[in-house]
Design a protein around this nucleic acid. Structure first.
Length: 541
DNA sequence: CTAGGGTTAG
């Protein structure tokens, strides 16, 4: 069992695994069935040798052994030092269990090993990687001396939590405190600029990268990602081409992903032709195939994946399955799904969505039940629930939809997002249950969720269908207040007034649209005939 | 001993 555990990666761990791991570790420690090549006395006498061993386990990706070794040191009352703790903290990070990290932190405080800059930096890193942002910031604030590594750790901390504004704040603070920037700093700066879409700031950082002139492969990758994120693929290509010498896989992958994100599929495929594509590049490229509904190209990717032996890569298989589903090939998607050995939550969600979007709501619900029966191995998340709810909506499965919505909060402790409410309201509205619609709305408000435009749209549609004039007008008013300039919403409201026969309001809204210069957007649909993309535009009045 | 780049679902 412990052998299996050692091969678990942190991404596949969930809460059940956490308690399993702790239980198994305790079991082994209690029965002392774990043996090492070192006798217990040599373990405690030669601490630097043991530190090396712990670090070795961590480096080999075996945090469980590292932890067990550390625990036996602790039981033997050995004098551990800061080096021991930093390695063990990395083991906690790999296990993704902040409870273990907190235990280590407590021991560090007790022995005074927590005072150094390096120790504190390890703590910041551990807390942030285990998802405890507050604790990480607290440790950073307690630091007396902060070197550039400590600052960089804090930067990554905010970036990991998707807080780029705070990250830029850290960068400014580093400037104020005259901390010298390292390559790591610039890397994080580029990531911040990418997520903030801050083109000018990013260009300035590019200048600093050029001045630094070191570690160009990593920084070039970050630059490519930045330029792609702000829509400047040509600049990304320039960075790629201007780098002479060795380019690694990640750099190619970054460019492929950038081209795909900017719908430059031809270039993406050309870049993939430069080297033997790896699983990540193929995954990126498949997104392009899905978006284009390009089944032909998708099949090419599939055959490359098979030839390269990537059939056990869950993420790649998920992308393939999704591509087939989006192209309407449900049975191909299904056979791919069946072949995935380690299905994760995305595999299940994609397959449920595949059924749902192709009008097979019953099968979507059945698969969801199967997923839940798997004994909690893979837990559904909010996206899974959204897929099930929307499948129920498309197929008119009212009871199933109601059951699913109940499960979300009561069984899985998830708080519904506005999108879940909108889907649910839609289901109830189509079923003619207008009182249910409004009680769902009140339920949402009571739970402190603010109605979004999507909620008002769902309510308005329900009111149109059920001739709920009074409350429909309320929804219409809120929607226009929230998004006064979005023509599709004005059209929706106007359709509502048409549905209840208020033609005076319809005319009024038409003239509002004219004076504001709002034009009804064209409806787009993609069809793919014989591998040729034809973009069919339909302009309806 | 501590910090950095690329991938999948709505």
């Amino acid at each position: 069992m412990i052998q299996n555990l050692r091969h678990k990666t942190c991404s596949t761990l969930n809460l059940n695994h956490v308690s399993n791991i702790i239980g198994i570790i305790n079991h082994y420690l209690h029965h002392q069935t774990f043996t090492t090549n070192f006798s217990s006395s040599s373990l405690t006498q030669n601490i630097s040798q043991t530190n090396f061993l712990i670090a070795l386990h961590v480096r080999r990706g075996d945090p469980v052994s590292a932890w067990i070794l550390f625990h036996s040191l602790h039981r033997a009352h050995a004098d551990v030092d800061a080096y021991t703790f930093t390695s063990v903290l990395r083991a906690c990070t790999l296990l993704h269990i902040s409870q273990l990290g907190t235990q280590v932190h407590a021991q560090m405080v007790k022995t005074g090993a927590d005072s150094g800059t390096v120790a504190k930096t390890s703590l910041v890193d551990m807390y942030s990687k285990c998802g405890s942002l507050d604790e990480a910031v607290k440790v950073f604030d307690e630091m007396g001396q902060r070197d550039v590594v400590a600052w960089n750790a804090l930067l990554s901390c905010f970036l990991r939590c998707d807080l780029p504004v705070e990250a830029v704040g850290v960068l400014r603070a580093m400037g104020r405190e005259n901390v010298e920037r390292s390559e790591f700093t610039l890397c994080s700066a580029l990531k911040s600029c990418a997520s903030l879409k801050a083109l000018e700031l990013g260009r300035q950082v590019h200048g600093l990268v050029v001045c630094m002139g070191r570690d160009m492969v990593v920084l070039s990758t970050a630059l490519i990602d930045f330029y792609s994120s702000v829509g400047c693929v040509d600049d990304a290509l320039k960075v790629f081409c201007s780098l002479k010498g060795w380019k690694d896989d990640m750099m190619y992958n970054s460019l492929v992903s950038g081209c795909v994100r900017n719908r430059r599929y031809g270039e993406a495929f050309r870049v993939m032709g430069l080297v033997r594509p790896n699983a990540v590049a193929l995954t990126s490229a498949l997104v392009g195939c899905s978006e284009n509904l390009d089944l032909w190209a998708g099949k090419q990717m599939h055959s490359v994946a098979v030839r390269q032996g990537f059939t056990r890569e869950t993420q790649l298989c998920n992308a393939l399955l999704d591509m087939y589903a989006k192209c309407g090939k449900v049975s191909l998607a299904q056979s791919l799904f069946d072949g995935i050995c380690e299905k994760d939550v995305i595999s299940w969600t994609c397959m449920i969505d595949a059924y749902g979007r192709n009008g097979r709501g019953r099968e979507a619900v059945l698969l969801f039940q199967e997923m839940r029966k798997e004994g909690g191995k893979v837990l559904p998340n909010s996206v899974t629930f959204l897929s099930v709810l929307s499948a129920c909506g498309h197929s008119g499965l009212v009871e199933e939809g109601e059951k699913c919505f109940k499960l979300l909060r009561e069984k899985y402790g998830l708080e519904p997002d506005p999108e879940h409410y909108a889907c649910y309201i839609d289901i109830l509205g189509r079923a003619g249950n207008i009182e249910g619609v409004w009680s769902a709305y009140h339920n949402m408000v009571e739970h402190g969720t603010r109605p979004t435009a999507g909620i008002w749209v769902a309510l308005l549609n329900a009111c149109s269908l059920n001739q709920d004039v009074e409350r429909g007008e309320l929804a219409a008013k809120h929607l226009l207040q929230l998004e006064p300039n979005k023509s599709s919403y004005v059209v929706l409201v106007s359709n509502f007034y048409a549905a209840i026969g208020r033609w005076d309001r319809v005319d009024e809204l038409r003239s509002i649209m004219r004076t504001k210069g709002l034009v009804k957007e064209a409806g787009n649909s993609w069809i793919n005939v014989l591998g040729l993309n034809q973009h069919a535009r339909s302009l309806s009045v």
